[in-house]
Simulated assay, not measured.
Amino acid sequence: MKNIIITLIAAATAAHAEPASTLGKIGDIEIKTDEIREALAGLEAGQDAALAKDPAALGQYVRALLIQRLVLKEALAKKWDQEPEVVAKLVRARESALTESFLESAAKVPADFPTPSDLQAAYDAAKPSLLVPKSFRLAQIYIAQPADADKAAADKAKAKADAVAKKVKEKNADFAAIAAAESEEAASKTKGGEIGWLAEAQIQPEIRERLPKLAAGTTSEPVKLADGWHILKVLETKDAHTPSLELVKDQLAVQLRAERGRLNRQEFLAKLLKENPLAINEIELAKVLGPAKP
C-alpha cells in the first residue's frame, strides 16, 4: 500500500495522468486514484505538500474515506436520509457547506504567494523567536538520596557517589558501562546513562552552572540535588543558533498563506456587511429567549 500511495502522489503532478485504477476497496465500494488526485488538488498549498511527504497520513485518509462510504451505504439502504430530523440537518449542513465553500473561494490566496521577498521579510521579523538556545546532550549516573534520609543513609549515598566518580575518572573508563551497572535511575541506565538533548533552560541551575566548564566527552564531579547525587557526562554541545531561511521557509510559507487567507476572509466579510448593514431586533430576540427567570 505504501508504494501505491507514493506512486499516486508523484502521478498527481504529472502532465498526463495514467488511467484511473482502484486505490482502495471495502466490500464492493472502491476509491479510484483519480478521486484522490482531485482531493489533493483541492487542498490548500502546504497541506497537499504535507500529505505528499507523509504516505502514512495519506493512507489513513483513504482508509477513513472508505469507512465513511461504507457507513453511508448502510444509512441510505435504511433510508436514513428521509427521516425528518435528518432532512433538517442535511439542509443546514448544505447551507453551511455552501457558505464555507464560497468564503474559501472569496478568500483564496494566490498560488504565487508568498514570494521570495515575502518569505525573507517574514524570516527577518521572526528571527528572535526562531533562536534555538544552547543545548547539551547529556548522560548521567544517579545515586539516590531522599530528602528525608538519615545521616547513615546520606553518608552511604555520598560514599557511593564518590566511588563511582572515581571510577569514571580512571583512564579508559567506560561511562556507559559504569552507568548501566551503578546508576539508580532505571530509564537512563539502560541507555548507558544517556538522557538526551536538553536546552539550558531545561537544566537545573545547580547543574547548568557547571556545564560550560565541561568540554564534550568530560564528566562532572558529583552534584547534589534534592533527590540525590548526579554525575554528568557531556556527550555533545550545540551553541545557540538561528535556523537558516532555507530550513524554515516551508513552515513560514504555510503560516503566511494561512494569515493571508484569514485577512482576505475578514476583508470580504467587512465589504459584504458594509454593502448589507446588519440589524437585530433586540425586542424580538428577547421573546425568542422567553421571559427572564426570577
Rank of each mutant, 00 (worst) to 15 (best):
P205K: 10
L66V: 00
A163F: 02
A75I: 10
L232G: 01
L70P: 06
G59S: 06
E221P: 11
L43H: 02
A15L: 13
V109D: 04
D81P: 11
E182W: 02
A279P: 03
S105F: 12
L131Q: 12
A14C: 02
Y142E: 06
E284L: 13
Y123V: 09
I143A: 02
F268A: 06
F175G: 00
I203S: 07
I207T: 03
A253Q: 06
G290A: 04
K25V: 11
R69N: 09
L66H: 05
A52I: 02
V109Y: 04
E246H: 09
L138C: 07
G192H: 02
K160V: 00
I5K: 01
G192K: 01
L273R: 12
D34A: 15
I207W: 01
E100N: 15
L225D: 00
D162I: 04
E35A: 14
I207N: 01
S244A: 14
A292H: 09
P84W: 00
E104Q: 13
E221V: 15
Y61C: 12
D155G: 03
K32T: 10
T242I: 15
A122T: 05
I143C: 07
D250S: 11
K166E: 11
A10F: 05
P294K: 08
P222M: 08
A157W: 01
K191F: 03
A49E: 15
L76S: 07
R262K: 13
A10N: 08
S129Q: 15
A49N: 08
D174N: 15
P277Y: 01
T115P: 03
E44Q: 11
K108D: 15
I4F: 12
P205V: 04
I231A: 06
T13F: 07
N276D: 10
A286C: 03
D48F: 09
A147D: 05
A122E: 06
I280H: 09
S220Y: 05
E246N: 15
S117W: 05
P146C: 05
R257Q: 06
I231Q: 04
P114F: 00
W229A: 08
I280M: 13
G42D: 09
H230L: 03
S135T: 04
